[in-house]
Structure formats: C-alpha cells, structure tokens
Design a protein around this nucleic acid. Sequence first.
DNA 1: ATAATTTTCCAAAACGTTTTGGATGTCAAT
DNA 2: ATTGACATCCAAAACGTTTTGGAAAATTAT
Lengths: 344, 344
Amino acid sequence: MSNLKQLAQSLGLSITTVSRALDGYSDVSAKTKARVLEAVAKTGYQPNASARRLRRQRAELVAVTLPTAPGHIGPPHFLDILSACAEHLAISGLNLVIAPVPRGQSELEMCRRFIDGQRVDAMLLVRTRRHDERVELLQSRGVPFVTHGRTESAKPHAFLDGDGFSGFRDATLRFIADGHTHIGHVAGPQEFSFAHHRRLGWEDALRRAGLASELMAEGEPTEHGGYAAAKALMSGPVKPTAILCATDEMAVGALRALREVAGGNTVCITGHDDLPMSAFTDPPLSTMRVTGEDIGVRIASLLLRAIDGEAPESLQEIHPIEFIPRASHCRSQRLADNDAGIHE
Amino acid sequence: MSNLKQLAQSLGLSITTVSRALDGYSDVSAKTKARVLEAVAKTGYQPNASARRLRRQRAELVAVTLPTAPGHIGPPHFLDILSACAEHLAISGLNLVIAPVPRGQSELEMCRRFIDGQRVDAMLLVRTRRHDERVELLQSRGVPFVTHGRTESAKPHAFLDGDGFSGFRDATLRFIADGHTHIGHVAGPQEFSFAHHRRLGWEDALRRAGLASELMAEGEPTEHGGYAAAKALMSGPVKPTAILCATDEMAVGALRALREVAGGNTVCITGHDDLPMSAFTDPPLSTMRVTGEDIGVRIASLLLRAIDGEAPESLQEIHPIEFIPRASHCRSQRLADNDAGIHE
DNA sequence: ATAATTTTCCAAAACGTTTTGGATGTCAAT
DNA sequence: ATTGACATCCAAAACGTTTTGGAAAATTAT
C-alpha cells in the first residue's frame, strides 16, 4: 500500500531520513523525528517485510518441522508450546512458520529447501530421534537450530529437554517404595530420544533394586499404541502391578486396556505430560511434567540466542520433572496401606 | 549462499536466461534449459525467498491467528488441521505462519501489523466469534481470508464450517427417539459461532418435540468447563437423563462430573470432534465429526482460491456431520431396551 | 538473394528497504 | 577568516529476484 517513498515525499524529506528516523538513529533532529512518527501513526505505515528482509539478509522467520506421522502429529499440547514460542519470537520480530513434511518428501529435503532458499533464520526440530539426520544436515550447513529433545549426535547442538530419565527413575523408585516388585513400562518408539530416556530411567531404578526389567512393551506414542502395549503386558505370564507409560496419551490407552482385563483395575499407572484431560480420566491420571514456566518461551529464547551466534554448548537445557500425584498411581489400596508389604 | 548471478556466470549465461529457464519459459532452448537444470541440481540452488517475494509482490505466506485463550489454545486436534493445511499450501509455494496474539495486544492490532506490513497474502481465522471484529477489518482492507466457522457478518466472506446445527439437532432427535424427555446441553461460550450453532440445533429438536429447553449450562470449551457445567446441570431441580456436550473436551469433563454424582452413571452423553482419546474414555464417548477428508486440506484450497481472487460467496462450505456411535449415548439399558418407554 | 518470421538470448528496470559515504549548514574555537 | 567539530540531511548503492522490451542469430517464406 504505502511505502517509504510516498511517506518521504509527503513530508518533504528523503527516504533515508524517514527510514533512519524510524530506526531511531541519532542522526535525525528531534523535530523531524516527531513529524515522521506522527505521519506514520496517521497513515499506519508498516515497512514492507520482504524488502526489509532482502536488504537485511534475514528472513525474520523460524521454521518448525512437523513430522507428519501417520495418525496424529504430536502431543495435543504441542500447539500450546508452539504458540507460546511464536509469541515470544514475535517480540524480536520473528515469525514462526509451520513446515510439515510433504508426503513423498523426506524431512531432509524439506529442511534443505528451507535453508537453501534462505527462507528461515533458524529451525526448530521436534520429535527428535536419537540419531537424527536433520541435525547432521543443519550442523553441516551452519544454520542455527534448536531441538526439542536431545540426540546422540557427536557434535554438540542446542536443545531443550526434560529430564525424563530422572523422572521415570524416581517414579519407579516410588513404586518400589510402595512395595511393587513387578513394574512394567509401556514404552514409546525407542528411536525417539524422549522415549528412550524415559525407558532408561525406568530400567535404572529396577536394576538398582535388583528387579528384572523385562515387563516392557513398545508402541506408537498414541492412545492406541498404549492400549495395545498394555494389553500385551497384561497377557504375559508375569503380570505387572504397576505400569509407567511413556506419555499421557499412551496411559489413556493403557487405562482402557486395564479396564478390559481381569484384575486390571488394581494396576497402578502413571503417564507423562500432564495433558489437560489427564485430570479427568477414571481414575485421574498421576503424571509428570517439566517444571517451571512455559517450555515454548524457553525454546524461543534458545532460538534467539542461537541466531545471535551463541555457541551450542551453552544452549543446552535439561529441566527437572515434577510428579503430579493423582489417583492412578496408588489404586491397589492394600499396597498403599501397608506400604512395606510384599505383593504378589 | 549461491545466487542467480553466480550461477549464470558459471554457465556463461545471463541472469535473465537462467531465471527464465527455471521458470519454464518457452523462451529458452532445450539444450540450455537442460544445462541450467543440471547446474541447479548440482549446486542445490534455491532462489532467495525474500528477493522473489519482493519482486513478485507476494509474501508467499499465510498467517493463522491463534487467540491465546487463558488455559489451552484450541481443540487438541487443531495442530493436525493446521499441519494438513500447511502441507497443502506448500504445494503452491505458500507457508503457514502461526500468529498468536501477543499479550497486551488486541487481535485487531495483530492483524493490522500483518496486513499493513504486507507480511501475508491471506489470513486464516479460527475460533470465530459470531460478531468478529477481525472479519470486519480484513473485509475493509480487502485481504483474502477464510474463517473456520461462520460469522453473522452482513457481508459474505469465505468460510468452512461443520453443520453443527444439524448434527446437534439429529443427535437430540436420536435421544428423543430413545425415549428421553429431559435432554440437557453443556454449551460452549455462545459468542463463539460453533458453540452457538450447536446450541440452536439442540433447541430446535426440543422445540419440535414440544420439550422444554431449559436444561442448559454454559462453560469454557475445556474439560473443566464441561465438568462444571455438567455438575450444575446435575444439581438442578430437574435432572437430565441425556446430555449433549458442545465438544469432546467438555464431554470428558462432564463424564467425570457424572461419575461423581449420584445416578450420574446412567446419564447418556455425546460430544463433538471425535478426538483420538474419545474412543478410550470410560465409557467410550459417542461423538460426531465433520465428514469427508481432511478439513485442513479443504481450508487450504479455500485460501488458495481466495488469493486467486474468487468471490467470497463461492467460497463458503458447510459440511455435514456424521455421528460416531460408541457406548456413552445409550448407557441406561432400560431406555435402550424398550425404546418407546417413558422415562422419569 | 532478400524479406519476414521465429528462436534464443540479454541489458536494464523494477520491487521497497537499509546502509554507506558524503554533502551542507551551523556553531564554537582559533 | 579559517579551522574543526557537530548536527542534520540525502543520493546512490546494494540486497537477489522477475519482467519488460528489445537485439542478434537462425530459420523459413518470397
């Protein structure tokens, strides 16, 4: 609509001066600056984004790659995280674009398109895999990026993660303290970083207590995955009396499986994520969550610092997990009452 | 990294020719076109997005405004819709940016920033209100846009909506046919278009059947909102024997409320949206969903047509709703068995 | 052989900013 | 009067594309 040229002309000033007035250079007198500001306020002038981006050689954009998994895309609270992230990025003039992987294309091709076309200043990777080819690509291109979840990459990179290991270890220890000796795990796909760490935490606690860690079933990180995995666990020769699920969604599926299986309604269960709905399941789901304020905001500030050129080593955050006790982690009252009792 | 100039130089061609070869003009011989394509494949050249956007006077971007509601942002399956939409837009070279409203700013200011800065070619509005100021602004600026959900705007605009009215009317009729005479409604905030239409459908069925429509409670479109509303309904002088909830999330909350209240476990209940988790509640939630293929894809194609200048009148879609029967809509077996029985 | 047409190419002008490197004028110090 | 310092302004270059309006070469028609 309106551009600098017209604005300058109407004020009898040069384009340069108007531009510098708006950018707050000391270069322009207080009087003309005021005049410019007034004119801008009146016309609602906004600099053309593409032009500024071209000149500044910054895209003012950050892309988040969404792996289009079959089924649904990610934990339901994911949009909240992205929204908070976008809101925080916007303060620094950056916008967040959603970059789902087109069908028939690899995640790699997609990343390449974005960085080679200089469409973005940085990227955000979610659903990180332990060995993630996207990470390697971005590292080799020198593009700033942050991953949600660690990887096992040799070269350090910026990431934000919850301490799933400790969270699941502590939850398992809690079950052990409650007298459980058969503690199962409904695991997410082990290629995913988050799922792997949570499993390791569960295993670690069992090992320390000298308990076997064979009661594990893996499934898709969805309600159905949790359902199927829990069914598998409950149909084995040795049945668990407590189950840690990798996510709340899986736990919801597991809850249904337990409902359908004989003796299932005394099996204790926990999830992870503290989804809004988890307080409303039957029984209300005991779960965990990353402590502190919004994850999205923290991711955003990591991204900003990465763009500013900060070293990856100093951009790695692992946040503690807090346990949200509700009803589901102590269903078998016998156990909870005589807490030292051995259960079989 | 690499640009047209370098590419042209290395091929001994002009910038123009290379550019036109890539855009598929008939203007360039088959042989040189092949040479160019090969060089592009080898160097991985991608045109600089900002430059192209500036020259073409298109932002190649579509923004979706996310109302940052207190609590959570939208239905959990929302990201799936956005993702599908983004994927489809990408085919035409458009990217989807998410534009949450920064705190302390109005949705209007945010829209203005985007369109005055020519940051976007079109906008997508969700959580549409019956009287939506964003719609008026965009109409007055002549920016292409599509809303998810109708409005009561006098001027027509592009939208995609489910036929919530018919969906809820039919579901209510189904309850009536099952012999229910006290049918309640856990409603969403009536300022929202979707919530209002669903209520009207419920009311319409009751009116036709000569039944009173006073058993309604309104709440936030969240689990907790549904919980509180259902509690309110169940603590009145006349209690419903069936309840239609505006969304699955509200239904999940209502289910818990019914669990906590005497006689609640025979009250029939339905939701709307068919969230993944709805098949796993106790009892499995009977619900509804928009028929046909992915909503996100359809929104995307509406957006594309709007950008192409198609008239708003021809860009209005209301899609039928299909009922997903599970267990929750016929809990009181007495009713279901003798279907003509009067219940009190 | 010449004119008309088609094919193939390209120089230069945009697009709207930001930034560089002065230019002009004012004022105080010499 | 000259110099230096400072305040205020601006012309022009650049960012990397796409598009316009030809120009040169090759082909066909006369």
